[in-house]
Amino acid sequence: MHVRRSYIAYRTIVTKEVTRFMRIWVQTVLPPAISMALYFVIFGQLIGPRIGNMGGFTYVQYIAPGIIMMAIINSSYANVVSSFFGAKFQKHIEEMLVAPIPNFIILAGYITGGVVRGLVVGVVVTGVALFFTQLHITNFLVMGSVVLMTAILFSLGGFLNGVFATKFDDISIIPTFVLTPLTYLGGVFYSITLLPEFWQTVSRANPVLYMVNSFRYGILGVSDINIFTAFAIIILFIVALFAASLYVLNRGMGLKT
């Protein structure tokens, strides 16, 4: 592998990806800020005081990390799936496929683009959250690493979705029918300790639960899940999805005939 050439290619893909979502920030950065503000208003300000404390915090404080994480998950996923499918649809993915770029560099470039959008949206939504509540970071390292890993994981998910999508419907099916239920049932708005034992066990099969709780631990210092277990599971998912993404890219699935 030609290291300098690969680095320039990686930098080009990342710059292109970041430029793309920043150029259309009204579609990519603003909507999560608005919808998350609505969550804070409705669940935090209007309904929250009637619910009372949860895990030793006001309800709005308790849900704030989950809402930020939800925005990061959705944005990372959406960035890669829409960008990669768009490149496939307009065929300009061929610009990269004919160039001497190792496949893992193409993958890394798209994933980095998704991570950057996830982080930008995360910062914006955190700014929105601060209008409604105060957040004190308990463990910066845990918080930062969970954000990074979550953005990587869902960028990989978006990449796989983009590879196999053949029409525009296909890029909204997974977010609508898989991602949204997983996120809503992943402990964003409640602690799973409120659920019956059976549903607590079922909830533990949901990977989003580990990310939301780890992130909540990083900020508030409370979690329904053991933090080491959560990290191990997130890393396991990243490794599995990265391997799957590289495999489909190397085989040219959905890209080559």
Binding site: I13, A87, M96, P100
Partner: peptide, 26 residues
Amino acid sequence: PQEINFSQFESSLQIVVNQGGYYGVE
């Protein structure tokens, strides 16, 4: 290629410069 296959949203200059980047051109 036979069919138009560049991003319809980017400028001509950006398309050409990006392609250089994919080939490792400084």
